[in-house]
Design a protein around this nucleic acid. Structure first.
Lengths: 212, 212, 212, 212
DNA sequence: TATGAATGAGGATTCATTCAT
DNA sequence: TATGAATGAATCCTCATTCAT
């Protein structure tokens, strides 16, 4: 059975249409098209025929790159999600940041990704609901994210830079805030406003400080 | 997980084409079962056969109470959601509450509902992804919730009891926080802890106040 | 999952089209049609659409009675084969028969069945080649047949009525003779000729006896 | 089971459109592998991908040597079968043999081939069931075999060396006996025992002769 | 000649929906 | 009203075949 191969294969060296590359471009076409369609309609309303047609490839070609409809779907999601989480972990590995700075960095990273991948949160809405097999991979990755957030908050609490009786709960709230804003925020909301608002909310809440 | 107590209240008027429901208990069996199954598996993996069998009724019987699979699904969601929103609006109609008290009341109402209907947020994950037709009803109801929240925050800001540069964004963040905690919170999380944490987060954030 | 139910269900009591009988007649239509088509074309050239259409039922109906195409196919074969074997075993249970008479009875039973089910041997040609799961059931039944034949021959040998150095080999040759004649015999070959020839072959071979 | 030694001889003339075979070893790899796979699984369960992979050649290469899957399949069968039949005819052309000796020779030839090509009868099980086009070639060849057998028996009957009221039926029974023994005979059955038993059965049957 | 990525017609299977009882 | 046998449109997936390299 063909495995869904990682999107980035053979760091192709420049020449596009010269020799036979087991076709990174075609995979891209499929991935992008699929992401668009799955974000528009629910899983069961997206036909592989549509994806193939819209991607300009044959129906069977989808099965060259993915094992099944679900595999395709989850590859889309996991791929994107894993890349943010890994990026965030890499960023936080740098201990030079204060915990507050680190949180800002995470939130920025998340909104940045969200704005660069407008369909992503729409896709995410159904995760965990299609295939039990891939779900664990997902949960593991989400757990990674939450854990790194929690660790950061705990670090801040220990250093008296943050005050939080339940860092674990707060940690899992942060992605939720990003999600809310991305899914339901007003059309045309700009990235900076969104990011700043989330940071402000997390940091200060909405009850006015005495001195301000 | 606690059992899903009924999300739906009664097929009051209007919804089922103003027909009186033939057998209220049978309807209950169906809706309860369906809520459980839809919360467990994604829409397209729940067969009407399964629902009918698990509910102990004939397949055809489902069509006595609902027009279609989608109708059943959305009835579950919408009725539950509408009931909370309407409850909240009723509560906030009482202007005696300060805006902060009002927000606490809303959050309490939301978590209360969430704890009473543990499957609800799982069901919600796919809303808007199944049928475009019913989506507008949904969005309208959510908009009602957001608006009442926003109005409350604005009232607080105007009265200098709250400080929020974007009440609209904050408003839509609140249900997101509830959702995050409900979907991803630790098993066994109790209602009071969840509610208090969300209220605290919204009110104060996690940066320590000088005086405290 | 629906199980292929035994052909004879509910010994229906007479009235044909009166009340709802989970439909023995429909099953018959399907079975007969399928037998005809599978005998005409190889397995992979018979489409379920064809069977359904020819049987005058809906495509989905096939799946009410059978789990899969293979299940349908093997049900046809096994059903027929098991009935002959069981018939033969019942017949041989009567020990009154001499072993030679018993062999004649078996051969008669086999050719009788073959003439009554002209498609059967065509169907049988591919048995054991389609589904490994059902194969054991098949082999078991064939083994029953061979064993009862072998036992009969051994009985005759012991009683000096038969002479056979390898009753086991002879036993498995007998169904082979029937098959050859049925599959490749001249068109219009009558049952008596076929039966008699096989009996004669088994009993006397083709080298003339001294006295005859 | 012994390994299938090659059923095919060489793609002599005529068959492959009189083109000379590009690479004889590659052809061998393909035919041997294909024979093994087709003997193991039914036609529709053997994929050309499997054959190509198992044979260690590219999928496209199969089409260098064969026109289609069916062509490959029937080439395997037909070539093997034709070679036995032609061998038998050549052998019987020598009229020096008595008809009984001739029959023994035929049976020996058939079992000899069967033992050298253990997969052959498995393959044969589905002949005539895959493609109507090639079937006539097959039937023609089988008819040749039967005819030569029948002619031999008739010769023996005429010479009073044999007694057979239906030489045509007996003729077609002989390959059936070989088949039965080869397909269903006990594991480890040796060639001599098999051959002798078939000869004995055909010649004498199992009713004891008076004098013996 | 040899290859294997790409193809898409073909077919098995599912399951929401209907309707006779 | 309640049922579940029957239906067939819808769709995923397979795999023989092609063809550019």
């Amino acid at each position: 059975m063909a495995r869904a191969r990682s999107i980035v294969r053979r760091p192709v060296s420049g020449n596009r249409a010269t020799m036979q590359v087991p076709n990174e471009q075609k995979l891209r076409q499929i991935t992008d098209t699929a992401a668009r369609l799955f974000a528009t309609r629910p899983f069961h309303k997206v036909r592989l025929d549509d994806i193939a047609a819209a991607a300009g490839v044959g129906k069977g070609t989808l099965y060259v790159y993915f094992d099944s409809k679900e595999d395709l779907y989850f590859s889309l999601l996991y791929q994107g999600f894993a890349s943010v989480v890994d990026g965030i972990k890499a960023r936080l590995a740098d201990d030079a940041l204060s915990s507050a700075q680190a949180l800002r960095a995470v939130i920025t990273e998340l909104t940045d990704f969200a704005f660069r991948n407008p369909h992503f949160y729409e896709l995410m809405r159904t995760v965990g609901k299609v295939s039990g097999q891939s779900e664990s991979k997902w949960n593991a990755k989400r757990k990674e994210l939450i854990e790194v957030l929690e660790k950061t908050i705990r670090r801040g609490v220990k250093a008296r830079q943050l005050a939080d009786p339940h860092p674990g709960l707060t940690a899992l709230c942060i992605p939720g805030l990003v999600r809310s804003i991305m899914l339901f925020g007003p059309r045309g909301l700009d990235q900076k406003t969104a990011t700043d608002h989330i940071i402000r909310l997390i940091e200060r809440g909405i009850v006015p400080r005495e001195g301000s």
